[in-house]
Design a protein around this nucleic acid. Structure first.
Length: 718
DNA sequence: ACGGGTGCAACT
DNA sequence: TAGTTGCAC
């Protein structure tokens, strides 16, 4: 349910930019001969011609609608060009469109705060830019106003009836005695026109935009004149706009809530909503939603434009309708493999391009039982710590699925052994990765980093918010290395040739769910780091703790399980410059400072006693191995696991045992920026790192230029 | 047997 | 928190 946020009294200039039939444009750019032809993008051409997911404006004239099947579209528009969505791994692959969306964001984010709202929509907060323009070059001082701005639709101007509507707009834009808010809006209009032209020039994509004082109105406006046009909402016409607007047109009211307003309150337009006192709305829909609705009726929306250019999660899913429903574990396994591979590839790109890592893997499924056809859905989603590498994701996803299936079949006690025809069907599967966090750039001092990180984390009410951390980190980061999430998507070049390609992560508590123990048992596996402990634990304490753990590791040879020093090896894709150090320590932020679950063998007797399997990473640490052979093995390991998917991704799958424990709390990565940071570490750790890194460094030229980095995490045991 | 594939946010 | 639900494109 929507929630009301107080609207600040300060005037804001917000734009909503919406790409016109985006997928179609992407295809038309790829195949220019399609331009001007009725075109639609379709996925899965097999059943009834596939489903349309985007319809070009030429095709719309024929009555072609989104959500038509390809066959229907052909009926109403025989000459329609149906372009299929690319298919990879047996499923639709939207990468092309995602990447095209990033191109647009790159242009739009140059001016003002930018929020990527979806694959083809962006919100901009242009307040600062508009204010600056009003001071420096107000519209009335301009000799020439671009025609694109003059083509704007300004609500309330009656320009549609005017013969020279552009002249009307010019007058409106340059009127210097109008309301201050309108004057700012005029500046926003000019800025947005300019931005849209830039988007067109740099990407060849046309877009529409709405310019208003808040997101809600901007969004509303952007849809009013399409394609390739922009609409402005002056304050004075808000009421007129909303009065007769069907309630369901409002964002968030297109679903059940909107229907409820219609049927329960007889509200058909936003104007109708004005009659209801806030209290009445609250009584019916709760305090938050009630207030939100009351605000909606008045065009009030305090929602901020978030500074976010990158998605907060990645998912890969597929549905299996009707007869395609999956009926065996092995078919589920097959599809989970496909989905996991796609997800893994996207995670690797994200890491590579944006230095971000996801921490949670979630599996969603839909199912039904043959016995009762009403049993659809309710296949509970399951999540676990995310381990990188397609094989691991697939393995974990399968286990999550099995857990979900057990839940699903639950009391029916049916045969869950995966044999066919045990009465269940799967109609959709998806794997997704969330809790994505930016890896901060190198610091000159791990210690400093930790102090800052620690305090900023623990003082934050919102552990999810990494802006706080980011800004805190900037204070200790080399300025030229400062990494701004805000521009993370678009400033990769500024990160230099560095890129993180692949790595294998430590371990995860994922699988302990599936080892047969119930939840009670699992609870004992988890050391909750409560707030106080988290804050008390000093950096040194934590490191010492880890170094002790790492000794234990040496003894029993179970690195990932016995030390809370999970290792990540990262191969740099662009690791180019000969002058560039190959080894990097980069601290990885971990946002959760409170209640972080640490599943370490040091705090669980169960884990101590099991997991005797040897991680393959260990090979690199075995003292009897010469450094050369370690290098060799390392290189081989990389090669062995090279994934050929796009020719420049590869995956390291270092450890492959199924019962890993531990979730990182703090991670530090060895970075080229300042190798001396290693010297800040306790001697035990230093020795281990150097023994491992030095040979590598020397032989690196012969070693395919791999950049290697280790993450390790001192964490305070409870 | 379906718009599918994604993604977000609030709620519990 | 993990898991659910709703919404949107």
């Amino acid at each position: 349910m929507p929630v009301a946020k107080p609207e600040s009294s300060d005037v804001r200039i917000i734009a909503h930019v919406d790409m016109d039939c985006f997928y179609v444009q992407v295809e038309q750019r790829k195949q220019p001969h399609l331009r001007g032809l009725p075109t639609a993008v379709v996925q899965y051409n097999s059943w009834k011609g596939g489903g349309l997911i985007a319809v070009g404006y030429e095709a719309r004239k024929f009555g072609v609608k989104r959500s038509m099947r390809g066959d229907e579209a052909k009926k109403v528009c025989p000459q329609i060009q149906l372009i299929q969505v690319p298919v990879a791994r047996g499923k639709a692959d939207l990468k092309t469109y995602r990447d095209a969306g990033s191109e647009v964001v790159r242009v739009l984010s140059k001016k003002g705060r930018c929020e990527r709202a979806s694959i083809d929509e962006v919100y901009l907060d242009l307040t600062d830019a508009a204010e600056a323009m009003l001071v420096e070059t107000p519209p009335e001082s301009m000799e020439l106003i671009d025609v694109e701005a003059l083509k704007s639709h300004v609500l309330g101007l009656d320009q549609e009836e005017q013969r020279d509507s552009q002249e009307c707009v010019r007058i409106w834009l340059t009127k210097c005695d109008s309301d201050y808010r309108d004057r700012l809006l005029a500046c926003g209009t000019l800025i947005v026109a300019e931005l849209r032209m830039q988007v067109l020039k740099e990407t060849e994509f046309a877009c529409s935009a709405g310019i208003a004082h808040n997101k809600m109105l901007a969004k509303l406006a952007s849809a009013m004149n399409k394609p390739a046009q922009q609409t402005v909402v002056p304050v004075s016409c808000v009421k007129g706009l909303l009065d007769s607007l069907p309630i369901k047109k409002m964002k968030q009211l297109g679903g059940k809530l909107g229907s409820s307003l219609e049927s329960d309150l007889g509200v058909n337009t936003v104007g109708d909503l004005l009659k209801f006192p806030e209290q009445k709305l609250q009584e019916r829909y709760g305090i938050n939603t009630g207030t939100w609705l009351w605000n909606v009726a008045r065009g009030i929306s305090g929602e901020e434009v978030e500074c976010r250019l990158l998605p907060k999660s990645h998912g890969s899913g597929k549905s299996f309708p009707g007869p395609q429903a999956l009926r065996t574990i092995s078919s589920v396994q097959h599809w989970l493999t496909e989905l996991s591979e796609e997800l893994s590839e996207r995670l690797c790109s994200d890491l590579d391009q944006n230095r971000r890592m996801a921490h949670t893997l979630t599996l969603h499924a839909s199912a039904y039982r043959l016995s009762d056809s009403d049993s659809h859905k309710k296949f509970s989603s399951k999540s676990c710590h995310l381990r990188y590498g397609a094989a691991k994701i697939q393995e974990d996803a399968l286990n999550l699925f099995k857990a979900g299936l057990r839940d699903y079949l639950g009391s029916y006690g049916a045969n869950t052994q995966g044999d066919p025809n045990s009465g269940w069907r799967i109609t959709s599967l998806s794997v997704s990765a969330s809790k994505i966090m930016t890896i901060p750039s190198g610091t000159s001092s791990i210690t400093k980093y930790l102090h800052v990180q620690h305090s900023s984390c623990t003082s934050s009410e919102q552990p999810q918010d990494n802006n706080i951390q980011e800004s805190a980190l900037h204070s200790v980061m080399d300025s030229n290395e400062a990494h701004d999430e805000c521009t993370g998507d678009e400033t990769k070049i500024e990160h230099g040739p560095l890129g993180y390609q692949n790595y294998s992560v430590d371990s995860s508590e994922a699988l302990d769910k599936f080892t047969g123990e119930g939840k009670e048992e699992k609870a004992t596996d988890i050391c909750n780091l409560d707030e106080e402990e988290g804050e008390r634990g000093s950096w040194k304490d934590e490191v010492m703790d880890t170094s002790c753990a790492s000794k234990e590791l040496e003894k029993n040879g179970v690195i990932l399980e016995t030390t809370r020093l999970p290792v990540v090896i990262v191969e740099s894709k662009f690791c180019s410059g000969p002058n560039r150090s190959e080894f990097q320590i980069i601290p990885i932020e971990e946002q959760k400072s409170k209640n972080t679950r640490i599943t370490s063998p040091l705090c669980t007797k169960k884990n101590k006693s099991k997991d005797k399997g040897t991680a393959s990473i260990l090979r690199f640490f075995k003292p009897e191995l010469s450094s050369t052979s370690r290098n060799q093995e390392f290189a081989e390991s990389i090669q062995d696991n090279l994934s050929s998917a796009d020719g420049h991704t590869s995956e390291l799958r270092l450890s492959d045992h199924g019962e890993q424990q531990g979730s990182e709390r703090w991670n530090y990565k060895v970075d080229e920026i300042d190798i001396s940071v290693i010297e800040e570490l306790p001697p035990e750790i230093q020795r281990e790192i150097w023994s491992w890194l030095r040979p590598h460094k020397r032989s690196n030229a012969a070693n395919r230029g791999s950049t290697i980095a280790r993450y390790f995490l001192p964490s305070k045991s409870s």
